[in-house]
Simulated scan of single mutants.
Amino acid sequence: MKKYLFLFTFLLTTLFCFSQEITTSVKGVVINSADDTPLESVNIVNLNEVIGTATNSKGEFEIKAKPNDTLHFSYLGFKSIKVRVTNDWIKFGSSKIELTEVALALEEIVINQLKLTGYLEVDIKQVPINNNYRYSISGLPGTGYEASSPTAITRVLGSIFNPADFLNRMFGKKPNEMRKLKKMKQDDEIRNLLASRFDREMLTALLQVDRVDLDEIVSQCNYSKGFIQTANDLQILDAISECYEEYKLLSRGRTNRL
């Protein structure tokens, strides 16, 4: 009888601890380190769980997290930071997070004014043309591949049918990063955050790659330089995800033929 009682108690304790771990969350307030004023709409992402939130008008936030998770804090004009979640933070409640303002250096912008003549046939030739093309391949889902010129067709085919393509080299040994990619697409808060950003900072933090590698991934997926330069972070996320799904489809096709 004592054995059964002990087993029952052990199971209840295990279930309770498991449920506590799932529902654990941390609270805090984000402030400006210079004057202690609260910062509203600070982007906060749990890099382990791939969930996000933002601070309210009082700088307050709450996000699901467990011990050793890493939270990424970012705000326009301030230096982004990563904070590790500790047992003490969870146990004792709210924590104060300070962000430091950084100086923004604007690059010189040169605007070439168009000298219009009033004649459409003459003026239309002064307008720069962005020669981006989009190619679709029969049998593949999605909208196809974007390239900067017609000669890129060979690059498209070469990257697709090359067994050691760039996506495989980048993510073949990082399945966790691709699982994060799927979670990012499913989390509405993350998508909303990415849709308003163009700095790639949150993407590089979530996918654990640097900016150069991120641009190279999109480039190797045959998206044009114009797209890479102008797309927001959500569009970059969707581009990588679409490319990876097509890569997996083609990889299964190669395996089946062998």
Rank of each mutant, 00 (worst) to 15 (best):
R211M: 08
E189L: 09
I22V: 15
K125S: 13
I44L: 07
N176I: 06
Y119S: 04
Q20P: 02
E62Q: 14
S241C: 02
S94T: 13
L39C: 03
R84F: 06
Q235P: 02
N131I: 03
D188Q: 05
I44H: 02
S224I: 03
L207S: 05
V127S: 04
K96G: 01
V102A: 13
L114V: 06
F198R: 14
A54T: 15
G172I: 06
I129S: 09
Y135F: 14
V26P: 03
T13H: 09
S41T: 12
Q220M: 11
V85W: 02
T143A: 04
N192Q: 12
D123I: 03
C221K: 00
F16L: 15
V42D: 01
I44Y: 03
K3S: 14
I63M: 09
V212N: 10
Y75R: 05
R252W: 05
T100I: 09
I90D: 04
I217N: 00
T86C: 13
G52I: 05
P175W: 06
A65P: 09
F16N: 12
I51G: 07
F92M: 13
R134I: 05
E189Y: 04
T154N: 10
I90L: 13
F227H: 01
G226D: 11
L5C: 06
L116Y: 08
L249V: 05
V83I: 11
K27G: 11
T117K: 05
F18H: 11
G118Y: 02
A205W: 01
D36S: 15
K225E: 03
D35K: 10
F78Y: 15
S138P: 00
H72V: 05
S25P: 04
V26C: 11
L11A: 15
L194K: 00
D187Y: 07
A103Y: 01
Q20G: 14
V156H: 01
Y145E: 02
L157V: 12
Q113H: 12
A147R: 02
G28S: 09
L5F: 10
L39A: 03
G28W: 02
L203P: 00
R84I: 14
A205G: 00
R200V: 10
N68C: 08
G158N: 14
Y119P: 00
D88R: 11
A65T: 11
A65N: 07
G144T: 07
L71F: 01
E60A: 10
E146A: 08
D233P: 04
R252D: 13
P150E: 06
I44E: 02
T24A: 15
F61H: 07
F6D: 08
T151P: 02
F8Y: 10
R200I: 04
N130W: 04
S241F: 09
G28P: 07
Q235E: 15
K64C: 03
K248T: 11
S138I: 08
N68G: 07
L15W: 13
K58F: 08
R257I: 11
L5S: 04
L11T: 15
F171G: 06
I90E: 02
I111W: 05
